[in-house]
């Protein structure tokens, strides 16, 4: 089988790339798909913490590349779901320890035996980004409704457009605060989509549950009651090709109509 390789990127740091990777990966695995998460943030690894796997890591991606272990040995199985595996980043090395070709090679090998390979990209547009993107054929750009994050996302979208291998680039709008949008103090989903001009794959509301779930090392998709968890499960469903309406985050009037419109556009493009 040939799985899909999706890179999760943003440009700006701290907008929720790693949280998104952990949650989409967990949600896809829960739906019965075989998933590998790759942390490419060498020197600043965190995906292991969000999954609660930090104590189980023996080998890292650099060990695989420098042939100290086999690829299979470096994959760490999730505690709850054996469908989900993590290939951790090396904490003691930096981005120069890996090159784009090596990462593409690893992605190519992993997609032979898995349905999904999700690549968690480091912040920035340098070597780390180039490496993470190398093996991917799809991209999810994570941003928040803030100017700096949107500007960086625009830059990333521009860079992704130059990569021939990337055939689909979609937007995930994170940390949306319906109250602020309602009082016109925050850019709305429509504003961001209009500016960035790529189809939306998810809207994640700001949720304090993210903090507690990170504390516990358990992705929020496992919490059936959390709104952000539901939003991430919806993203996974959309990645699988299902048509799931976006959550009603109670924006100003006409919001649902507009979102339906956006969704209709999405359908046309897919």
């Amino acid at each position: 089988m040939t799985g899909r390789v999706i890179v999760i990127t943003s440009g700006k740091g701290g907008v929720g790339k790693t949280t998104t990777s952990a949650n989409i990966g967990t949600a896809l695995a829960k739906s019965g798909y075989k998933v590998v998460l790759i942390d490419t943030d060498l020197g600043l690894r965190n995906l292991d913490l969000l999954l609660g796997l930090e104590n189980r890591i023996v080998y890292t991606i650099v060990d695989v590349i420098e042939e100290r272990c086999k690829l299979k040995q470096a994959l760490v199985k999730d505690k709850k779901n054996p469908n989900l595996q993590l290939l951790a980043a090396a904490q003691t090395r930096d981005k120069t320890a890996v090159n784009a070709e090596q990462l593409k090679d690893i992605c190519d090998k992993l997609k032979e035996k898995n349905d999904f390979v999700l690549v968690d990209c480091p912040a920035g547009i340098e070597q780390g980004f180039q490496n993470a993107v190398a093996g991917a054929s799809e991209a999810i750009v994570v941003t928040t409704p803030e100017m700096s994050a949107i500007r960086d996302a625009d830059r990333i979208i521009g860079l992704l457009a130059t990569k021939e291998e990337i055939t689909s680039t979609k937007l995930l709008l994170n940390r949306v605060r319906p109250n602020l949008i309602k009082s016109n103090e925050m850019m709305s989903v429509d504003d961001v989509v209009e500016i960035l001009e790529i189809p939306l794959v998810g809207i994640i509301p700001e949720d304090t549950g993210i903090i507690t779930s990170t504390n516990k090392g358990e992705p929020i998709v496992n919490d059936e009651n959390a709104l952000a968890g539901k939003a991430y499960r919806n993203v996974a469903q959309r990645i699988l090709g299902e048509e799931i309406p976006f959550l009603d985050l109670d924006e100003p009037k006409g919001f649902m109509a507009k979102i339906k419109n956006v969704f209709a556009k999405l359908k046309v493009k897919v």
Binding site: M147, I150, R151, D154, R155, S183, N184, E185, M186, M187, S188, D191, I195
Partner: peptide, 19 residues
């Protein structure tokens, strides 16, 4: 409130055009 949001949108649009 709207001013704050639309200020952000307008500033962003201008800076993106330059980028």
């Amino acid at each position: 409130g709207e001013a704050s949001k639309s200020v952000a949108t307008n500033r962003l649009k201008l800076v993106l055009m330059q980028d």
